[in-house]
Write a protein that binds this DNA or RNA. Structure first.
Lengths: 226, 226
DNA sequence: AGATTGTTCTTCGTATACACTCGCCGTGAC
DNA sequence: GTCACGGCGAGTGTATACGAAGAACAATCT
């Protein structure tokens, strides 16, 4: 898109508002700010060591992304993902990740597949070490990589956003379910390597279905609404 | 051209930033601001008769939604939907609208179906009157209504955002394809009424496929304002 | 007690200031 | 003539201050 003006340098500077947005998102996902918690602009500005303006701009984007809810003239609170919307989220994600798997299967180069296998290996290793944090990281990396291979920027950005929310729900719940999800990943990469779109879609659906059950259980036992 | 925009923002009770966002989106979709056009904060502030702050907050959200591209320290320009991303957009929309159709079929009440039929009738009438603008409105209303019936807020908000982009591409292209799309709508509503999820999905896919061909042709032909 | 009033906190919007970066353009050196 | 340098203006990025409006809550009054 709009390739004419881009490409020059100076793009390496991340505006403060973006840094704030990233920090805010991760703080919410990590549970540093709990659902229902009030987020006054002053407080966030102080927490992040910036003025209110960057905070306000980051808040608007966070609202658009569904991480916070802004009540007019009342301010922002951390959104509360109810178990109802978790189900809705997975229903959408199921379709999107299935499409991503199909496109990836149809378009993956040998190098793409090699990169996926590399992630798979690292994941296997980390699982044996019981390094759950690293497993979760590699889990994300794998999904993101498949999205990238799909080559559809819309699909990619939408699914990434949803994926962040999934991570949020997972963290809020108690345990990671990482161990047994890894076998599903192998199935998925195998299917992508085969180039068979239908098979890749089915593998993605199976994976998502299992993930949903885990997330849903977490959400049920997790936190209070509002 | 700036006068009418300014007048609309006067006497309402939504936060200014939201009014600016709506005005900005519609201005972009209507082609008042053309792809690649530079959007300086000062100019937008003047166009909408507000200060820079609401404009900035609206711009960040518009960026997140994909309507503008913001280059660090350079400012915002209207995004350019290339024909490549139009194909990607429809690939995603196809899946989402198919899901919406399925959910709607499974959950629609008699009242929901009646509302859809009402829209269908109005659409038929408007088509006979060759009132293309009204037909386009009813077209949107029908799709939005189906999303609402689906009862999945994630699906709804994501698809709405995509739908706005589709409208953008349509307006940039030359003619509306409204007339023959109406038959497909009838098929779709029939399927929803039947409560048969598979059938509703297929109807949605057929509709989207036809719409894609039209949109793609428009995008190929390049953009001309109005 | 119940209604009214007032205080306080916070957002919302405006205004202003200033550093920084980028692109443009004129000037001068070669 | 052309190329490099440097000044200049435009515009963003950030900070800060200020006032208005609204909501929540406590205090006051009847």
């Amino acid at each position: 898109m709009t390739g004419d003006l881009r490409g020059k340098l100076g793009a390496q500077h991340l505006p403060l508002r973006d840094q704030v947005l990233v920090a805010l998102r991760t703080a919410i996902i990590n549970g540093d700010y709990l659902p229902g918690e009030r987020l006054t602009e002053d407080r966030l500005a102080e927490d992040f060591g910036v003025s209110r303006n960057p905070v306000r701009e980051a808040l608007r984007v966070a609202e658009a992304e569904g991480f916070v809810v802004i009540l007019p003239r009342r301010g922002a609170v951390v959104a509360s993902p109810s178990s109802g919307t978790v189900a809705d989220m997975f229903a959408v994600r199921e379709r999107l990740e299935a499409l991503a798997a199909r496109l990836a299967a149809e378009r993956a180069t040998a190098a793409d597949v090699a990169a996926l296998r590399e992630l798979l290996d690292q994941g296997h290793e980390a699982t044996e070490r019981h390094d759950l944090r690293r497993v979760a990281e590699l889990n994300s990396a794998l999904h993101l990589r498949i999205l990238q291979i799909s080559g559809n920027p819309w699909l990619s950005s939408i699914t990434k956003a949803l994926y962040l929310h999934v991570q949020w729900v997972f963290r809020l719940g108690a345990a990671e379910r990482a161990p047994h999800s890894w076998a599903e990943h192998i199935q998925l990469v195998d299917a992508i390597e085969s180039g068979d779109g239908d098979r890749a879609e089915l593998a993605a659906l199976a994976h998502l279905g299992a993930a949903y059950v885990a997330a849903h259980e977490n959400a049920e036992g997790g936190y209070q609404a509002r």
